[in-house]
Design a binder for these strands. Structure first.
Length: 282
DNA sequence: ATCCAGGACCACT
DNA sequence: AGTGGTCATGGA
């Protein structure tokens, strides 16, 4: 978030976005003859009405849809997405952002913004594979350091080919991801949803588990995996989108109840997870 | 201070 | 196959 817009490095290019009355205004450093890379990243081609229309019409889902109108899922770079979520386990989103900021600053390629400021891209797997564990721990990632390093090694030496996974099925891609150190059910599903574009992937984190047990299956006594399989069946082919609506809704709801943002008049400031974007309906 | 955070893994049943 | 303890770090 930067001023009234958002900036990031996408596929090596600095880009800043602003929302203007149902349009997305994008600015880059160089002239772009082709904006497909950005359209793909933002997934603006997705028929959101069709996606939302596929959701079950229960009260929790409907109130999430009403509260998060326009919420979309991004299509992120597989390595960047995978690394982010390896760093995410039992961390608050603010802390994940801090860890990632350190990683980018220390090991990421330098990129110049339109204003001439130096920013940093997310470091490649090859670069991180060349970094010692203690240097990673200096970025405050704690016990996740060996997971990130070992996975970076597997990706860097080609034992895991993240580009090839783009052409593989949901099931095979999931199995390949689960074989990586530090990647379990939840993180695999995040990468399948946010990087490989499988809309049926349904990551169950502590927040989504909370929603499922409170509003859907309150007397379910099975483990997390059985709860997830229920959800995948119930929410349908776009379960991953439904998950994002429920996730974003419960988090913004809880903030409104407890935080000081209401008093500060910032209750409706745009607190969106890095994987999602609000676009005005239509 | 105490609890908990966009979990995964290992050693046990 | 399924469950509890453990792993760093720092918000809230």
């Amino acid at each position: 978030r930067e001023g009234d817009g958002w900036s990031n490095v996408v596929q090596g290019r600095w880009v800043q976005l602003r929302q203007e009355q149902g349009l997305i205004h994008a600015e880059t450093v160089n002239v772009q003859t082709d904006w497909n890379w950005l359209a793909d990243y933002l997934q603006v081609g997705v028929n959101l009405a069709g996606v939302v229309g596929s959701f079950p019409r229960d009260p929790a889902m409907q109130s999430a849809v009403a509260a998060c109108a326009g919420l979309r899922v991004f299509r992120q770079d597989p390595w960047e997405c995978l690394a982010h979520f390896i760093l995410s386990s039992t961390k608050q989103i603010v802390q994940i952002q801090q860890i990632v900021a350190e990683l980018k600053l220390r090991f990421g390629e330098r990129v110049v913004s339109a204003a001439g400021e130096v920013v940093h891209a997310f470091p490649s797997a090859t670069r991180l594979a060349s970094v010692s564990e203690s240097e990673l721990r200096d970025c405050k990632m704690g016990f996740r350091a060996p997971y990130l390093r070992d996975t970076a090694n597997l990706v860097a030496r080609g034992d895991c080919d993240l580009e090839r996974l783009r052409t593989r099925s949901f099931t095979e891609s999931r199995a390949q991801l689960l074989a990586l150190p530090g990647v379990g059910d939840k993180i695999a599903d995040c990468v399948l949803l946010f990087a490989y574009g499988f809309p049926q992937a349904f990551p169950v984190d502590v927040w989504v588990e909370r929603v499922l047990r409170r509003h859907y299956w309150p007397r379910h006594r099975g483990n997390l995996r059985s709860l997830q399989s229920r959800a995948v069946e119930y929410f349908g082919p776009f379960a991953g989108y439904a998950q994002q609506y429920l996730f974003h809704h419960i988090r913004t709801q809880d903030r409104r109840l407890a935080s000081s943002d209401v008093a500060n008049g910032r209750a409706h400031s745009n607190r969106i997870s890095p994987n999602t974007l609000h676009v005005l309906p239509g």
